[in-house]
Simulated scan of single mutants.
Amino acid sequence: MTTDTPVEQEPDRTKRLEEEGEIAADYLEELLDIADLDGDIDLDIQHDRAAVEVVADEDGDLSVLVGSDGEVLEALQELTRLAVQARTGERSRLMLDIGGFRATRRQELTALAEDAIREVRESDREIELAPLNAFERKVVHDTVAAAGLVSDSRGVEPSRYVVVQPSPEQGGASAS
Rank of each mutant, 00 (worst) to 15 (best):
E122N: 15
D69G: 01
E29H: 14
F101E: 02
A86E: 12
R87C: 02
A24F: 04
I98G: 03
G60N: 03
E10K: 15
A24G: 09
E126K: 10
D97H: 06
D69C: 00
E8Y: 09
R81E: 02
G60M: 04
D4M: 14
A134L: 12
S159F: 13
T14Q: 13
L132D: 03
A24P: 04
L94R: 04
E30R: 15
L129D: 09
R121V: 13
G148S: 07
V164M: 07
T14V: 15
E108Y: 11
Q170F: 09
S151A: 14
M1G: 15
K15G: 11
E53T: 09
S123M: 11
E71L: 05
R49M: 10
R91C: 01
E30A: 13
P166Y: 03
A50Q: 04
A75W: 05
L73D: 00
Y161K: 10
S151Q: 07
V66Q: 02
V162P: 01
A111L: 12
R49N: 14
D40L: 11
T14E: 14
Q165Y: 07
S167F: 07
D124I: 08
F101Y: 15
I45P: 00
L73F: 05
I127D: 09
Q165A: 11
E128N: 13
E30K: 15
L79N: 01
D48W: 08
E90L: 10
L129G: 06
D12S: 13
E128Y: 12
H47Y: 11
L109E: 05
D4W: 13
Q85S: 06
E18R: 12
I98W: 02
A147V: 10
E78W: 09
V163C: 06
G21F: 00
L17M: 08
L109I: 12
L79C: 03
A130E: 15
V156M: 12
G39I: 01
L37I: 11
L31V: 09
N133C: 11
E74I: 08
P168C: 11
A116Q: 03
D61H: 09
E19N: 14
T80F: 02
L79F: 04
T3H: 13
L94H: 05
D124R: 15
R91V: 11
V140T: 06
Q170Y: 08
V156A: 13
I127S: 08
R125C: 00
D33V: 10
V84T: 02
G148A: 05
E78P: 02
R154P: 06
D97G: 07
D69F: 00
S92M: 04
E119K: 15
L32I: 07
D38N: 13
R81V: 01
H47K: 13
T5F: 07
P158S: 07
R102K: 12
V162K: 00
A147R: 03
E126C: 05
V163N: 04
V144Q: 04
L76S: 01
A116T: 07
S63Y: 08
E19C: 07
Q165P: 00
S153C: 11
E22W: 03
A134P: 00
V120E: 03
S174F: 06
I34V: 15
E78S: 03
I127L: 15
P158R: 01
S63V: 03
V156W: 05
I45S: 05
K138E: 14
E108I: 10
Q165R: 15
S68W: 04
A86D: 10
E108W: 08
L43N: 07
V84Q: 01
